[in-house]
Structure formats: C-alpha cells, structure tokens
C-alpha cells in the first residue's frame, strides 16, 4: 500500500509541475515537451487505476501522434519573435486568483460531497483479474457501444479530410494532370479536318 501511495504522490507532483510548465514556459517547444511529460506521468497514474489499455493508448496516440504533431507545427511556424516576449502580463494575478478559486471550489465540492459518491472504500480487484483490461474494454466497445465506436471512427475520418482540405495548397504554375478535363474533352476541338486541294500538274 505504501508503495502505491508513494508512486501516486511522486507522479502527481510531477504531473502538477509539468502542467505548470506547459503554461509557464516562454518557448512553446518546452511547453510541448512539458505536456508530453505530463501525459506520461498521467499514463503511469492510470496504471494505478488499472486502466492499462488507456494508459498505453495515451502514450501511443497522444505522445506518439498528437504531441509530435504539435511539435511539428510549433517548429514549422516561424515564431521566434514570440518566444522572446514574456507571457506574463497584468492579467496574470487575476488569472491566478480565478484559478485558485476554481481549485478551492472544486476541492470543497469533492470533500463535502464525498458521502454522495457511491464508491467502494476498498477498490481492490475491481474488475475481474482473470480477464485483461483490454479484453474487457474491447468486449464493451464492440457490443454495447458499437454505434458510438463507428461514429468515433467517422469523426477521425472527418478530421483527416478536414485537415487535408484546409491545408492543401495549389501552387500556381505547376504542371499537373487534370483527369476530368482529359475525360470530358470534345474531339471536334482537338482535331480539325481540312480539305486540301490536290495540286494538278
């Protein structure tokens, strides 16, 4: 038990610090890397909650794909001038104040409402250990939530289409094949029959 608690506190401290790093670093590259670190610590914490599959997914999808995309965009854009200026301004104390209020409120709510949580106080072996977390999730996903799953897939497809269509750029002066024009061509415009008088000699 104590070991788990130690792990929890260590990782949660890292999570809070890296989260602060995301918003406090001047350089967005540092921010992104800090965010990656916070995802990894989150994944570790999710392992504590026996959500092994999601922890792996978080690292694979988020760290491996999304955050790389972030870094890619950050580095692609020429934002060197942004880096130098401080991100702090006169509204920062107010933001801190609001943030603290929200934290205070949420924590108050969590602790005064704790009696309303229908939770078991000893969450040992919540889910059947003989069946793996992945199996359990997959079973639920492909039976009860099949339609949602399909919709999720469709959303991803949509995201692909949108991203491509938004960022696609046609440059002037490029020579490329236009299939539709080739197919729809009118033969009479291509070929001209000319009567030529044969010369008599």
């Amino acid at each position: 038990m104590a070991f788990i608690e130690i792990i929890f506190y260590v990782f949660s401290s890292i999570l809070v610090l890296t989260s602060l790093g995301v918003i406090l670093f001047k350089n967005p590259v540092y921010s992104a890397i800090s965010l990656i670190l916070s995802f990894i610590t989150s994944a570790a914490l999710w392992l504590l909650l026996q959500a092994e599959f999601l922890a792996i997914v978080l690292i694979l999808v988020y760290v491996g794909a999304v955050m790389v995309l972030f870094l890619f965009v950050v580095m692609m854009l020429n934002i060197s001038d942004v880096i130098r200026t401080s991100r702090f301004n006169k509204i920062a104390p107010f933001a801190l104040f609001i943030g603290l209020i929200i934290v205070g409120e949420l924590i108050t709510l969590i602790w005064i409402r704790s009696d309303q949580f229908s939770m078991t106080s000893s969450p040992i072996s919540v889910l059947d250990t003989s069946v793996g977390n992945t199996t359990l999730l997959g079973t639920a996903l492909f039976t009860d939530y099949l339609y949602s799953f399909e919709i999720a897939g469709f959303i991803l497809l949509l995201a692909i289409v949108v991203s491509i269509s938004l960022t696609l750029r046609r440059r002037e002066g490029l020579k490329r094949q236009i299939v539709s024009e080739q197919v729809n061509i009118d033969p009479t415009k291509r070929m001209k029959l000319v009567d030529l008088k044969s010369e008599k000699n």
Partner: peptide, 25 residues
C-alpha cells in the same frame, strides 16, 4: 485522484487566461 484532476484542470484554465501570445499554447 479527484483533487489531482481539479488542480490540473485549474492549471489549464489559468493557462488559457494568461496566455496572450501563442495560440498553440
């Protein structure tokens, strides 16, 4: 766990308010 999540959430909120330079953040 809930408290931890609340702290992270509040940090995210503060980040949105503070940040004025970079939309990626």
């Amino acid at each position: 766990y809930l408290t931890l999540a609340a702290i992270v959430f509040a940090i995210g909120v503060m980040g949105i308010i503070i940040n004025r330079k970079n939309i990626i953040i």
